[in-house]
Structures are given as structure tokens and as C-alpha cells.
Computed example of a mutant assay.
Amino acid sequence: MFVIRPIQEKDYPELLKIAEESGHGFTSLPVNEELISNKIKRAEASFKSQVSEQPEEHGFLFVMEEVATGKIMGTSGIESAVGLEDAFYHYHLGKVVHHSRELNIYNTADILTLCNDYTGATELCTLFLREEFRKGITGRVLSKFRFLFLAQHQERFSSTVIAEMRGVSDENGDSPFWQWLEKHFFSMDFPTADYLTGIGQKVFIAELMPKYPVYVNLLSEDAQAVIGKVHKNTEPALKLLKSEGFSYKNYVDIFDGGPTVEANIANIHTVQNSDLYTVEIVDALDSDKNIIISNTFVEEFRATVAKTKLDQEQKIITLTQEYADILKVKGGDQVRAAVLK
């Protein structure tokens, strides 16, 4: 049994360990003690924030905690609006046509153009489940609970929701895509560039990145091969997001070439299929259906999963007192819930 809750200052040691375990390419959680401490403080402030007319650049960071032991199993986050304070870069993969009527030659070429097209979008980020807990449904829940939070508090977020997928790199952190950029435009390796971005030092991107579109066929074959491809450890996360209605619109990461996927918040399957239900306390649950459940709070947000029943007509959900306590609700309160598919 586990609970997902907002991160707290007491979680700092575990979050630092998670940053170390996550490895290269996990840009949103670099191994930097000051930054991780500030990340927790920012998250605490975000959960306490009031709703504004426009989405602000808040960072909602959650942890999954094992109820019996208090162990932190993983983390997951949402950035409400990216790029409002620091530039948010992508490459857009497009095409250019070279055509000569006189010579009857017609060629198309793929090009990568540096852009800030996702400025203001909401980003799903910082998803990491520790290896010992990677079994059963925990990974799916750690990703999907965020859609209940988005559904319940849509006024805090953009209509466009994105997720950057980790691109291809080896166990040493070497990225084929970055190696080409490093050779021609930068003098630093991929882990260093990735780390600098993670701690917010992005000026070097504008200073050193090629200002004009890059013809893909000028890249090395290894670099071309990984554009829009994900790291092997990221394949399950991408599959899950695609099942929720996210799609790839030819935007890739500027460092490793990994794909960014997007969806309209109203079209995300779990958002569409979730609803508010009134809690009814029972002695025991009798169902084989996994239901992902969250309360309706922000600062005191809690989420979990239970094998229980949803009465679709009367909008009632049955919970034992143990689950109600985990969710910080009581009989008669409302929760948001959806079937975990």
C-alpha cells in the first residue's frame, strides 16, 4: 500500500538519492544539493499558491511513499507553465524543398530548427520509480495520478500538456546526437551540458547553438538514427503516454534528440474518464478492479490506488477507513477517481 503526496523538506535526503540513481539525461533532477533543496522549497510554495488568472511557473513535485515503512518509492512532477522565466528550447523537425524546374530536379530535406514553441505549456516531468519498486502497477500509478490532479485543478494549468522523453545515450552518458553538436559547436560533453541545463544555466544554448536550421543529412549517421527515439528505459513511459492520447509532433530535445509528446488537457484519457465520487465507508472492499483515487485538495493532496467499486449512476465510491485515512477524507467527502487501465 502506498500514498502519493506533495514533497516536503524532510524528503530532501531521499530526493538527493533519487537524483543520483536516475543517471545521465534526467535533466529535471541534477545531482546538486542546493538546487534540490530549492526545488523542494519551490514545490512547497507552489502547493500553497492561490489560483491566478494566468498559469504561473509553479513546480508541483510529488513523492510516492510506502505506507508500512515510510520509504520513498519514487517521484513525479508537473510544471504548470514552462519557459516564462527561462527560455525553453526545442528543435522542430521540418522539411525544406529544393526544386529546379529547368533541370527537373525536386528534392526534400529534413531540417532541425531551434524554437521556443512550447513556451507556456504544462509539462509532465521528473518521473522516476526506484528499481526495487518497479513491479506491478506502481509505475503506471506514479505517472497517471498526475492526470487526476490536472483534471481537478485545470485552472492552474495550460491547455497544452507536454512530456519530454529521454533520448538515446549509453551507460556513460554519451549521446550520439550530442556528439555531433559537441564536435561542431560546443566543447563540452553531454553530461556537462545536460547538468548545466538542469541547474538553470541555459545562456550557453543561445550563445553556442547554431542559429540557422540544421540539415539532418549533414549530421552523422549515428546522430540521424536517434532523432525522435527514446532511451530503452523510457520506452514504457512513452507507451503509457501514447495510450493516454499523447502524440509526437516532430519536436525533439536539443541535446539528445529525444521526442517530446503532447496532448490537449481535455483529451487526455484519464482526465476524460475521471469523475467526482462521494465516499462511502465500508468494512471491506470486494472488487478486482484497480481504481486510482485522489482527494480534491492542493496543499494536502493525496492519491493512491485501491481495488474497489465505482457506482457510476449514484457517483459513489466505497472505501475502507484505512484508505480514507490515507486520502485524508471521511464519509460524505468527494474524491476524484478513474479506472486504472
Rank of each mutant, 00 (worst) to 15 (best):
K328C: 02
V298M: 15
R140H: 12
Y215G: 01
N32K: 04
K239G: 01
D117G: 08
L219C: 07
T308H: 06
P30G: 03
L340K: 04
V329Q: 06
I293N: 05
E85V: 14
F88D: 12
L15F: 07
M64D: 11
Y215N: 00
F149A: 10
P55E: 12
S80K: 07
D286Y: 10
V203S: 14
E171K: 10
D117I: 07
L124F: 10
Y212C: 02
F88E: 14
G25E: 05
F26N: 06
R130G: 04
K309G: 14
G245T: 02
A206R: 13
E65I: 08
L129Y: 02
G83Q: 12
G77T: 06
L142H: 02
K41I: 11
H184C: 00
A151E: 02
S274N: 00
L208I: 01
I317R: 03
Q154F: 11
T75E: 05
Y277I: 09
R42G: 12
Y215D: 01
N233G: 10
S22V: 11
Y89D: 09
Y277S: 11
N295S: 06
A81C: 02
H92Q: 12
T304Q: 04
H24V: 08
A19K: 13
G167F: 00
S175H: 04
K39H: 07
L129W: 10
S49G: 08
V214K: 02
Y323D: 06
Y251E: 04
T318Q: 15
S243G: 07
N233I: 03
K328D: 03
C125Y: 03
T75L: 13
V168M: 00
G23R: 00
E131R: 08
Y195W: 09
L114K: 13
E313I: 14
